[in-house]
Computed example of a mutant assay.
Amino acid sequence: MNEVTSFKSWQDLLTQREAVLLFVKTDHCSVCEGLYPQVEELHEQYPFPFYSVNVAKVPEMAGQLSLFAAPAVLLFHQGKETARFARFVPIEPLCKRMDELKEATRG
């Protein structure tokens, strides 16, 4: 997963990509550390890029995206958030939403 280092770079990415997954984590978060490899492993199954951001390093992301818990996984299509999973992220419903996003990007 590529890392987002600023809110500005994130805005630029959203305009350049039709679909994107954003994995949000923070420092000292054991749930984040456990979930990250599970989500990262899914990347090979989907045609859209996966990005991560550590909101302890980029706090503006938390404010701009109204993030109140970590970990969180957000899906975006055409620059708009289409799904949000936070805290204990269930993999099966996440995959279902990513499958829908995959179909939407095929047009």
Rank of each mutant, 00 (worst) to 15 (best):
E3Q: 10
T5F: 06
T5Y: 05
S6P: 06
K8G: 09
K8M: 09
W10F: 02
Q11E: 05
L13H: 04
L14N: 05
T15I: 05
Q16C: 00
Q16Y: 02
E18M: 12
E18C: 12
E18H: 14
E18Q: 11
V20E: 00
V20H: 00
L21N: 00
L21W: 00
F23N: 06
K25T: 10
K25F: 05
K25W: 04
H28M: 14
H28Y: 13
C29P: 07
C29S: 11
S30V: 14
G34A: 13
L35N: 04
Y36T: 15
Q38I: 04
Q38F: 04
E41P: 12
H43E: 11
H43M: 14
E44M: 06
E44Q: 07
E44S: 03
Y46P: 15
Y46T: 02
P47G: 00
P47I: 03
P47L: 01
F48V: 09
F48A: 13
F50M: 09
Y51W: 09
S52L: 13
V53R: 02
N54T: 08
V55Y: 07
A56F: 13
K57S: 15
K57D: 11
V58M: 08
P59Y: 08
P59N: 12
A62K: 12
Q64I: 08
Q64M: 15
S66A: 15
F68E: 08
A70N: 10
P71C: 10
P71N: 02
V73Q: 13
L75A: 12
F76A: 12
H77I: 08
Q78M: 06
K80G: 04
E81M: 04
T82G: 07
A83N: 11
A83M: 13
R84L: 01
R84Q: 10
F85W: 02
F85P: 01
F88Y: 13
V89W: 03
V89L: 06
P90I: 05
P90N: 03
P90C: 03
I91T: 01
I91P: 02
E92C: 12
P93F: 11
P93Q: 15
P93G: 08
L94V: 08
K96P: 01
R97S: 06
R97T: 05
M98R: 03
D99L: 03
L101E: 04
K102A: 08
E103P: 03
A104G: 02
A104T: 02
A104Q: 10
T105L: 08
T105A: 05
R106Q: 12
G107Q: 13
